[in-house]
């Protein structure tokens, strides 16, 4: 099995790895680059725990091949907050107890961040449908939705 050399950018850093063509981007991130914040919950694109952005588009990294990352810009949960400051969504998730086990949390944060970039003031329904591909089995989603709403309000400069 011949591996392919892949050069890509992850969270702003240039990186290289060797990928078996059958290997997913999720596997490459987790096993070749040590970025284990993206999770595998299903491997079929149904749970969203592996959500990352590729060239600015929200995708399931379990449904992207590692070799497809050649030349791309990848953003993962590890790049979300910056080195010293959390993203408002990260803070609001902790404040609102929007996580219980925390396994779906990285994927939901990455997805929610993308939502707020496209829509600074989403309705509850818009948030729920945007996040429909991110399964959470612990919370019943209530506190997740509230945390996203509160983070959005803060980012708009409004008091929640």
């Amino acid at each position: 099995m011949t591996k392919v050399h892949v050069t890509t950018t992850v969270n702003g850093d240039p990186v290289e790895f060797l990928a078996d063509p059958r290997e997913t981007l999720l596997d490459s991130l987790r096993n070749s680059l040590g970025l284990t914040g993206s999770k595998e919950g299903c491997g079929t694109g149904d749970c969203g725990a592996c959500s990352v952005t590729m060239n600015g588009t929200l995708v399931c990294s379990c449904l992207v091949l590692g070799v497809e990352a050649e030349g791309a810009q990848i953003e993962t949960i590890e790049g979300m907050g910056g080195d010293t400051q959390l993203h408002p969504l990260q803070r609001k998730f902790v404040e609102h107890a929007a996580l219980q086990c925390g396994f779906c949390t990285p994927g939901i944060l990455v997805a929610a961040k993308k939502l707020l970039e496209e829509n600074a003031n989403p309705t509850e329904t818009e948030i729920r449908y945007w996040l429909a591909g991110n399964l959470c089995r612990c919370t019943g989603y209530d506190k997740i939705i509230r945390a996203v709403q509160d983070a959005a309000a803060e980012m708009r400069g409004e008091a929640a």
Partner: peptide, 17 residues
């Protein structure tokens, strides 16, 4: 805030795999 909150919103928390 929960003590393990930061680990779990940054992807640092280590799960089974």
């Amino acid at each position: 805030d929960r003590p393990d909150g930061l680990d779990k919103v940054t992807g640092r928390a280590r799960y089974g795999a």
